[in-house]
Amino acid sequence: MKYLVTGVAGFIGSAVVDRLTDNGHIVVGIDNINDYYDVNLKLARLERIKHANFKLIKIDISDRDIIAKLFEEEQFDCVIHLAAQAGVRYSIENPHAYADSNLIGHLNVLEGCRQTKVKHLIYASSSSVYGLNRKTPFTINDSVDHPVSLYAATKKSNELMAHSYSHLYDIPTTGLRFFTVYGSWGRPDMAPFIFTKKILNGEVIDINNNGDMWRDFTHVNDIVEGIIRIADVIPTRDASWTVEDGSPATSSAPYAIYNIGHGSPINLMEFVQAIENELGIKAEKNFREMQLGDVYQTYADVGDLFEATGYKAQVSVEDGVAEFIGWYREFYGK
């Protein structure tokens, strides 16, 4: 099959390309390689995924004409749309970047799929959509009407936009709500990376909400496995579905939403301890209040994804942290 993967210089995108090319698929990857974080890390990821079946094109998904031309020229079978402006806190500082990438860019991808009759669009949503929800575990039937960051609001918008295109144009779309992804080649703006870097440098690490936070940490290998599996599960129309009786994560349209996480959250302090144990260094900690845009807990109910694909996370936190820190030490020579 011929795939388009957006955001291929990113953490998850590069890992997905690696898996698809190993499986013999043809992949076109796009990325604007912006400087939201270290460009050298992005370039190193791209160097790692060089393959005869992979072609990189440097473009921005917010450019309507270029994206339309790409779809017309390449005629993709399947699209895995992972490009987005990421980060909860950065959305407070620079909201327009999220409108350009996460809203306009997502619309451009949907239009490309519509015009060229793509067989399946899989796109990245986020556990952030659960916002003020306090009931755990988070299920795909829960309300996602109260986001606490603009980033989360754009991800919910992505789901709504996808549904409208599935309904109007019969485009099969699947949204995946990712839960706190970590692992080798990870993002420098996320806690595992920040903690590891600061501990190795002898710097103080900030612990939000005085350590009373829970996260459903999910290793990138498990995330990629879920993406690859769900790509083969194409939603179909269901004439019997109704708003009154059906799940909000399904529809009469060819549309689906799934959680993709580990399904077993741990306390933030336990995760920090796993990093300390692996590094052999005790961190100096600054305990502080909950930060703007943060949520207290994430916890994924992945039962629907298991039912659809047999997906079950395999990487423990201890093994995942060891894998990440092994990569970090090698990559940065620490």
Rank of each mutant, 00 (worst) to 15 (best):
D63V: 14
P95R: 07
D294T: 05
F76C: 07
H167F: 14
K197W: 00
K135E: 13
V39F: 02
D238K: 05
L103I: 15
T173H: 14
I325Y: 10
E93D: 10
K198D: 12
I205T: 07
F306A: 15
G131P: 15
K55R: 12
F11M: 01
R114N: 05
A153G: 15
G131Q: 11
G87E: 03
G131M: 11
I223R: 00
P188L: 02
K50M: 05
K135W: 04
E284K: 04
Y130W: 05
I67N: 00
K198T: 10
F324T: 00
L110S: 10
F193K: 02
V79Q: 01
F271C: 12
L305K: 08
T173M: 02
L41C: 01
V321W: 10
I61P: 13
Y258I: 11
D238R: 02
H25K: 09
Y296Q: 06
Y36D: 04
T136V: 12
A68S: 08
E318R: 09
M213W: 01
K197S: 15
G112N: 09
K155I: 13
A52V: 01
H163S: 04
V224M: 02
K55V: 10
D31L: 07
V88D: 09
G202T: 01
T21P: 03
E203I: 02
A52I: 06
V5M: 03
D232T: 02
D60A: 08
D301F: 12
K117C: 13
E307V: 08
R114C: 06
T218W: 04
I122D: 04
T139I: 14
I325N: 08
S264Y: 08
T174P: 07
D60E: 09
W241L: 06
D301Y: 12
L176W: 13
A9E: 11
S127F: 12
P248E: 05
S143P: 05
R134S: 08
W185Y: 09
P137I: 15
H96P: 02
E225G: 00
Y90K: 04
N133G: 04
K42V: 00
F287I: 14
A84M: 15
Y332P: 00
K119D: 06
A274Y: 12
A44T: 08
I30Q: 13
N259C: 08
N32A: 00
K285W: 14
L268M: 14
S143D: 11
E74D: 09
R45W: 01
S184Y: 07
A97H: 08
K119E: 09
N286I: 07
T6D: 10
P254H: 09
H51A: 04
A231C: 15
